[in-house]
Simulated assay, not measured.
Amino acid sequence: MSRRVSMADVAAAAGVSGQTVSRVVNGSPRVDPATRAAVEAAMTRLGYRPHRAARALRTGRTQTVGLVASTLATVGNSRMLQAVADAAAARGYSLVVVTLGGDSIAPASADVDAAFERLRDQGVDGAIVLNEATDLVRDASTPVDIALVVVDSPPDDRFGVVVTDHAGGARAATEHLLSLGHRTVHHIAGPAGSFAAAERERGWREALAAAGAEASVPVRGDWSAASGHAAGALLAGEASALFVANDQMALGALRAVADAGRAAPAVSVVGFDDVADAADYRPPLTTVRQDFDRLGERAMALLVARIEDGAASAAPYEVVPAALVVRSSTAPPAP
C-alpha cells in the first residue's frame, strides 16, 4: 500500500515550511498569493488530501463553519447561502446551516441561543450570520467560543461585519430617477427592523433632501412580490417614480402599475439586488446590483482570520460597493 502524502512532503516539494502548508490548508489569509499558488500546485502534483480527523485532533479545529439565517425563502438570503457555501468550499471548510424561523422572514421570538447550541453540537469553528438574523444576534448573548462574522450590521467590537453599501446604492437609484425629471420619488420599503431596509431608506431620504424634493411616507413590504404588488397598488395612482427596496417587491410593483393602466416606464420603477431574472422582467428592471459573491467571499475571509487569530484579530468592518444598473423600466415622466 502506498504511503499517504504528508504536509512535510508538500512543504519539501514547494520549498516552504510545514507551517506555511498548514496555513494554506486551513485557508489562512496570512499567505501571499504566489506562495499559496506554489503550495496548491505541489498539493495537486503529489495528490495531497488533508486528513480532516487528524487535523481536528492536532489543531482543535474541525474545518466546519455555520451559517445562521432567519429564513432562506428570500432571494437575498438564498444567494448569500450559495456565495458562502462556495467560499467555504474553496477554503476546504464544510458548512452547517441553521434557520431561525422556518418561512418567517422576521421571527418575533427566535431562540438564537438554541441556534448556537446546535452549531456547537456540530463542532463548528465559527459562524456567519445573515441579514435579519443579525438584529437577533446583537441582542443575544454573543458566544465567546464561536468566531462570528455578520452580514449587514452596524460596527460591533464583538464580531466582524461585512455590509453592502445599501445607502449608497439607494442614493444612486433615487438620483437617477430625479435626473430623469421626476419631481420626487416614492419608496416601497423593506420590513421594519431590517438593517438593509433601513439603510436603503436612509439613502433614498438623503438623495431627496439633497435635491430639495419632498419625501412621502414609505409603504412597507416584507420583501415578497405579493407585498410589492399591494404597496404598488396604493401608489400607482399618484407616483411617477418608485424606488423599491428589493427586486422581488419591484416585480409586484410592476404588475400593480400595469393593473392600474400605467405600465412602466409610464411609472418608473427601480429595484435593488439585481437578481438573475431582473433583466427579463417586463420591462427589464433598472436596479441596484449587490455583489453577493463578493459578500460571501469577504465574510468567509474575515471568519477564517478570526478563527486563525482569535482575540488577536480586530473586529473589521468592510463595505462592499453596490452599482446602479440602468434598464428600460425607468424614463422621464410623461408630459
Rank of each mutant, 00 (worst) to 15 (best):
R49A: 11
P332F: 12
P154F: 07
A305D: 15
Q63I: 07
E117Y: 00
R36C: 02
A258K: 05
A241K: 02
S153Y: 00
R120H: 03
H176R: 07
L208H: 00
D156K: 01
A331T: 03
D103K: 14
R205E: 09
V21I: 05
G310I: 07
A189G: 12
Q248P: 03
A34F: 07
G168L: 12
V65C: 03
L72P: 06
V244T: 06
M1T: 09
A90N: 00
T44P: 00
A85K: 06
A197D: 05
L178I: 10
M249L: 03
A69P: 04
G310C: 09
P107I: 08
T164C: 15
A192D: 15
A256D: 07
G193V: 04
G190V: 06
R36N: 00
D273A: 06
R120M: 06
R120T: 11
T62I: 10
M43D: 02
G271T: 01
A41T: 15
A258V: 05
R205I: 08
G310S: 06
A173D: 04
A12W: 03
V162M: 09
V162L: 07
I307F: 14
A276L: 14
R158T: 06
V151R: 00
V68Q: 02
P154Q: 05
A167R: 03
G101W: 03
D293L: 10
A53R: 12
L72H: 12
A133M: 13
W204C: 00
A69E: 05
A106M: 14
A209H: 13
A173R: 03
D309M: 04
R58A: 15
V68D: 00
S94P: 04
A211R: 13
L180A: 10
G66Q: 08
V39Y: 02
G252F: 01
L285V: 12
E318F: 03
S179T: 05
V244C: 05
V270K: 04
R171M: 01
A198L: 11
E206V: 12
R205H: 14
A12G: 13
D135R: 13
V320H: 08
T64Y: 05
P335N: 11
L178P: 03
S17G: 11
G126I: 04
V257D: 00
R36T: 03
H182Q: 01
P332C: 13
A334D: 14
T330I: 11
Q82E: 15
P107E: 07
M300Q: 04
S313W: 07
S328F: 10
Q82Y: 14
R200Q: 08
L302W: 02
A37P: 08
A37M: 08
Y281F: 15
F195W: 09
E199L: 09
L148F: 05
H166V: 06
V288K: 07
A209D: 15
L235W: 02
G228V: 07
V39C: 01
L178R: 01
D121M: 14
V21F: 09
G203W: 01
V24L: 13
A42H: 05
A323L: 15
A231Q: 11
L285N: 08
V24E: 12
G102V: 00
A322D: 11
N26P: 06
G123W: 08
G123T: 05
L136H: 15
V68L: 14
V150E: 02
E132L: 12
R200C: 10
N77H: 13
L285K: 01
L72E: 07
T99V: 14
W223G: 07
R61M: 10
P155C: 10
A41N: 12
R3Y: 02
D156N: 10
V24S: 13
M300V: 10
